[in-house]
């Protein structure tokens, strides 16, 4: 049913592809004879300084009289949407509420938007959310893209297995172990670095990863212990083994160049800790008192 004219666009696309590939090869050559400069850096910059207007995120928050926080909806203990009530609850949510209360005087002036490990950075940088309170580990790599508050939770990476599994710790994980994890999480790189030749099966979010583990698609699910403990509460046939093998300090991420908001958030964290409110929130979700090391 296609006339001769219909062939032209297809040929056009072929031409486009050829051009793109040519561009790819050209770039390759350039990298080959020139010095090996990291080419990722320039692409990361424009997003950051483009927003340098008088309109700060903090003033936007006060203007709309509402704080928009990016939180997890699928992570028990930290941010979980309850199928029954439709409410989102967890440690991160309580922290977000405290920030809303401090900034706007009312903890209900808070809008929660669902983020995943993969979506949270783009959403923050394009202004969909004011800050990220979503089990986010502070890393040097991420500090290039966003700013972080003081640490508000100390987690560490660990392993979740079915009760009775032969895997008791990281030493039992070999390159043939079926490990599942979540795209965009630091935990993937950590374990792939520690176990040579290992390939993690990655999913879009924790719910899909946990469902895959439960279906027997993996022997181990790896991520921060805090998240794993939440999964054991969801299904008691699973347990966390082997202790932690990394430090995963959680911070609240804020767009670059918003010093006033970072200061305000740090004040909230300090106040929560000095008033004992932090310990109360910690005990409410994690079930024990925080270790007193800070």
């Amino acid at each position: 049913m296609m006339d001769r004219a219909g062939r032209l666009p297809l040929l056009g696309i072929l031409l486009l592809i050829t051009m793109l590939i040519a561009a790819g090869c050209g770039g390759n050559n350039k990298a080959g004879n020139g010095n090996a400069e990291p080419s990722n850096a320039p692409s990361a910059e424009p997003g950051n300084d483009a927003e340098a207007g008088s309109d700060t995120v903090l003033s936007q928050i006060t203007e709309r009289d509402k704080l928009i926080a990016g939180v997890k909806f699928d992570t028990k203990l930290f941010g979980l949407k309850d199928p029954g009530s439709g409410n989102v609850e967890g440690f991160d949510i309580d922290i977000a509420k405290a920030i809303a209360k401090k900034l706007l005087g009312d903890e209900t002036k808070l809008e929660l938007k669902e983020v995943t490990s993969k979506t949270r950075m783009p959403m923050l940088n394009n202004g969909e959310i004011d800050l990220i309170v979503a089990t986010m580990t502070v890393t040097d790599e991420r500090k290039k893209e966003v700013d972080f508050s003081e640490i508000y939770f100390n987690a560490g990476q660990s392993l979740l297995v079915k009760k009775g599994s032969a895997i008791r710790g990281l030493d039992d994980v070999t390159k043939d172990t079926k490990v599942v994890g979540v795209k965009g999480a630091t935990s993937i790189k950590n374990i792939e670095d520690k176990v040579e030749g290992l390939r993690v099966q990655q999913f879009e979010n924790y719910q899909e990863a946990f469902n895959a583990l439960k279906a027997g698609q993996g022997d181990v699910l790896t991520t921060d212990n805090a998240i794993l403990y939440g999964m054991t509460k969801q299904d008691s046939n699973y347990e966390v083994v082997g202790g932690t093998f990394t430090d995963e300090p959680y911070g609240i991420a804020i767009k670059k160049g918003q010093a006033d908001l970072v200061t305000a958030v740090n004040e909230v964290i300090a106040e929560l800790k000095s008033s004992g409110e932090y310990d109360r929130i910690y005990e409410k979700w994690i079930g024990e008192k925080p270790e007193t090391k800070q």
Partner: peptide, 20 residues
């Protein structure tokens, strides 16, 4: 489902997580 909108499949994933 890959961008976690909260449509049918995402909700199904959450419910299936309760219990094998």
């Amino acid at each position: 489902v890959v961008i976690t909108l909260g449509e049918m499949m995402h909700h199904a994933n959450i419910v299936m997580g309760q219990n094998s």
